[in-house]
Design a protein around this nucleic acid. Structure first.
Lengths: 207, 207
DNA sequence: CCATGTGAATACATTCACAGCA
DNA sequence: TGCTGTGAATGTATTCACATGG
């Protein structure tokens, strides 16, 4: 009943994008209805967990039937606030930055790179997939002026903290960090860290 | 006392690489001793959690002093089995695959790309940072012959499951999956999934 | 002293199991 | 009937708080 204000555990929020991804995939297969059971098999979470996670936000299913895919997809997009597209600043125009700039999977899922920054004067001014690379000293004011609240850090570890500081000063509220180092930011700023090597290392433990 | 056989929670294993990363960083700053308190501040986990995590594997600290960095670093490398370097197969020679092939942060942390595969005949035979791209139909036998147990999937979502199947048939035991789709593999095979968009979506929830 | 290592206590997350409704 | 939504029960993880020993 009293949904949406009861404080939802962060671990639940972390699963919602996976539910959303699976639903979009089902929809693109032409499917219209699914069940917690089917999602369970596709995703590897228990059906009870999926039902309980969704119950934090409302009642989206029909007893005896399941979930209308399009409806649940839309509901999750609104919960996650990805029913509109977010502009992002990309910092770092190395190999990784270029791969991210060329990745065409962002838009359909709610994100768009709006500008690219790099500190190397050899890269500033060059074109990457229609963006002209901007100098780092324009970072703070650019993101502030353009009201950009999301950023991707794709610079070497050594430079990451300073970039994060400038992003925060520019008003950025969430950072996707590819640098293999922990960032220290004010509590209002969210950081999601991607470290492929850490992932590999936690798998080799089991081998 | 009876360490190392008591079943360690996966969530603990997932934090060890972060402890290791922080220790390596401290060591490269010329430091020799640290404490759970200092690591706590650097990493954002509680000091009690760090101590408890480490206690699953042994007693590495000195009361009143803390941890000898070099020693703990070495211990964690052995626990995670990254005291030697693992060969990996990289599947997918698109922008992401090339970025991974050019990434020079693998070796120092226990990994090395040994071969690269792609299905596009336009890419097969080309050179990427000294590797010659091999055709997909050589995948299964190559990884088997070279005893490669780790692979990175960097292909479009649509192709990912089939690639995973062939890797598994070739004897691969752990997969780092960059394709935005859930893979189904036998229980003995570990999968670590990286989906930057899912990370972004779980942050926009809070904005 | 000071910081570890660890049982005990607490907090959190998942699963169970079933009432309720299409 | 079949599947959701959800309290209650169980299972995990984190934190507390302190005895221990350098």
């Amino acid at each position: 009943m009293s949904h949406s204000n009861n404080h939802v555990p962060a671990i639940v929020i972390g699963r919602l994008p996976l539910y959303l991804r699976a639903l979009t995939q089902l929809a693109s297969d032409g499917r219209h209805v699914t069940s917690s059971q089917e999602l369970s098999e596709k995703l590897g979470f228990s059906s009870a967990q999926i039902r309980k996670d969704l119950s934090y936000f409302g009642e989206f299913g029909k007893q005896g039937t399941g979930y209308e895919i399009e409806l649940l997809e839309q509901a999750l997009k609104e919960i996650l606030q990805v029913h509109h597209v977010w502009d992002m600043a990309l910092v770092g125009a190395g190999d990784l930055g270029r791969a991210l700039a060329n990745y065409n999977g962002f838009e359909a899922r709610g994100f768009r790179i709006a500008c690219i920054f790099d500190s190397a004067s050899s890269k500033v001014g060059t074109l990457i997939n229609h963006w002209r690379v901007l100098p780092m000293d324009a970072l703070r004011e650019s993101v502030r002026a353009r009201k950009i609240y999301l950023a991707i850090i794709a610079v070497p570890a050594i430079a990451a903290q300073q970039v994060a500081d400038e992003l925060v000063e520019g008003g950025v509220r969430a950072i996707l960090n590819y640098a293999p180092t922990t960032l220290s930011v004010p509590p209002r700023v969210k950081v999601f860290h991607i470290d492929p090597v850490a992932g590999l290392q936690s798998m080799t433990y089991y081998l």
